[in-house]
Write a protein that binds this DNA or RNA. Structure first.
Lengths: 229, 229
DNA sequence: AAAACTGCCATGAAAATGTCATAACGGCCT
DNA sequence: AGGCCGTTATGACATTTTCATGGCAGTTTT
C-alpha cells in the first residue's frame, strides 16, 4: 500500500523535525515547510492526503492557507489538522468553520497526533489505513489488492485497480479526466485525456457482473463518477 | 433538507439539556440518553448521522459503546465525537484507536462542539453541511453534479446545468439575457441573446415535475429569475 | 515466448448546441 | 372590444461536441 502523503507546515524547527521523523517511521511520506506560501505550492504540485498546519506561521497565516487550500479544486477535500495554542479557542472555532477538520492544542504528544491523523485518514480514505472499502455492491480490500462485486472476484489490471480504488474512496463525486489523470496516473502525466475513456471502458467491462446496472456514471462534458450499486 | 440526526449520550443532566437545546435550535434532530445500552438501542432502531458520546457513562462504558457501534454494520460508519476529561490523554488515544472520529475535552464551549460537529458532518455527508444548494423544492449537489426536485432526479444537459446552478446561486434575482450570457456562457461569448430563451425553455422542460408551477419567472423586457418553489 | 497491459487512434453513435421561422402572448391604444 | 406592436415560447433543423467501442502496436510482466 502506498504511503499516505502528509504535508507538514510548522514553524518550530525542533518540533517539525521531531514530527517528521516520527511520521516517517510510522510509514508516512512527509514533506515539511515552515512557510505558508510554500505550503500552498507544495500542495498544488502534488496533492497530499492530509495537511498538518500550524496556525502561527510565516508567510500566509494558517487561516489564510486553510482558506486557500479549500478554494483550490485539487485540494478542496484534503483534510486539515491544525495546531493551535491552548488558549486560543476563538482560533479553533474559526479554523473549524473555515474548513479544518480537526485541531490539536499545543503542547501535545506525538502519539496523540499520530492517533488523530490515523483517525482522520480512516474516516476520509479508509484504504490508506488498510481498511476495506465498500461502495454499493463492490468491495475493495487494499491489503489483499482484491476487488469483488456480489461475491464475484473481479479481474482488473493495475491501472483499472488504481482507478476504481480512487473512485471508491470518493463515491458519487464527479471527476474530470484531468483530475483522474492527476490522481491515478500521477501529477503531470503527459497522457491524452481521451485515454481515460478507454480505461473507464475497460473498468466497466471488468466490473460487469450478473448484468446489474453499470455503477460508473458518465457526466457529459464534466467527467465520471462512481455511484453505489 | 432533512435535519441531521444526532445521538447524544451524556450523563450530566444539565450539560445534556444545554446541548440538546443548542443543537436543536441549530436545526439538528437530537435524541439523548444517559445510558450506554440504551444508546445502542436507539442507534440500532434509527441510525443517527453522528454520535456524541461521553466517555464516562452508565451502562456500557464509552469505549464499549464505541466498539459496539463500530461492530454493527448499520452504525459502523457513523462518526463519533467523544467527550473526555481533560487529563485523560490515554483515553483519548484509545478512543481514537477504537474508532472515534474526534474528541473534545471538558470543559468545552458549546460553540466549539457545534463547529466540530459541523466539520465532521461536512466531511461525511456533504449534503448535510451546506455544500448543496437548495432553492425551494430544488436541490443541487455540485460535487456529484446532480440536480433533483421533490426527490426526482432531473436530467439536464451541461448548459442547462450551468444555467440552473447560476440561478440557484442567486435566487429571486432577475438577470438580463446579456448577464446570463456572461455568467453562464462566459464573458464575450458571441451568442444570440435569443438563444437564452431556448435554453430557458429546455431548462423549464427538464425541471418540470408533478406539474408543480414553473419556478422560472419571465420578466418582460428584463430577463428571467428563479423563484423558490 | 506467451500473455497481459498500456496508450492511442479511427469510427460510428448519441447528445448537445445555436439559429431560425412561426405561433402565442402581453400590454397599450383607440 | 378589437387591433397593433414588441416580446417571448415553441418546434424543427443542421452543425458541432462529446462519448463508446474495437482494434492495434509497443511494452512490460510472467
Amino acid at each position: 500500500m502506498s504511503a499516505p502523503k502528509l504535508l507538514l507546515v510548522e514553524d518550530d524547527k525542533a518540533l517539525a523535525e521531531l514530527l517528521e521523523y516520527r511520521f516517517e517511521s510510522e510509514g508516512y511520506a512527509v514533506r515539511a515547510t515552515a512557510d505558508g506560501d510554500e505550503a500552498l505550492m507544495l500542495a498544488a504540485e502534488d496533492t497530499p492526503d492530509l495537511v498538518i498546519l500550524d496556525w502561527m506561521i510565516e508567510g500566509a497565516s494558517g487561516l489564510e492557507v486553510c482558506r486557500r487550500l479549500r478554494r483550490e479544486k485539487s485540494t478542496a477535500h484534503v483534510p486539515i489538522i491544525m495546531l493551535t495554542a491552548r488558549e486560543a479557542e476563538d482560533d479553533r472555532v474559526r479554523g473549524l468553520e473555515t474548513g479544518a477538520d480537526d485541531y490539536i492544542t499545543k503542547p501535545f504528544s506525538p502519539r496523540e497526533l499520530l492517533a488523530r491523523v490515523a483517525a482522520v485518514l480512516r474516516r476520509v480514505r479508509p484504504a490508506l489505513a488498510g481498511e476495506t472499502i465498500e461502495v454499493g455492491d463492490m468491495r475493495l480490500d487494499p491489503v489483499a489488492h482484491r476487488l469483488e462485486r456480489r461475491g464475484h472476484e473481479l479481474q482488473v489490471g493495475p491501472t483499472e485497480y488504481r482507478l476504481v480504488k480512487f473512485f471508491m474512496e470518493h463515491p458519487r463525486r464527479v471527476f474530470s479526466r484531468g483530475q483522474l489523470l492527476d490522481a491515478v496516473w500521477g501529477t503531470g502525466s503527459e497522457i491524452e485525456e481521451r485515454t481515460v475513456d478507454v480505461h473507464i471502458r475497460r473498468l466497466r467491462k471488468a466490473i460487469t457482473v450478473e448484468n446489474v446496472r453499470d455503477p460508473i456514471r458518465t457526466v457529459r462534458s464534466a467527467g465520471y463518477a462512481l455511484e453505489p450499486v
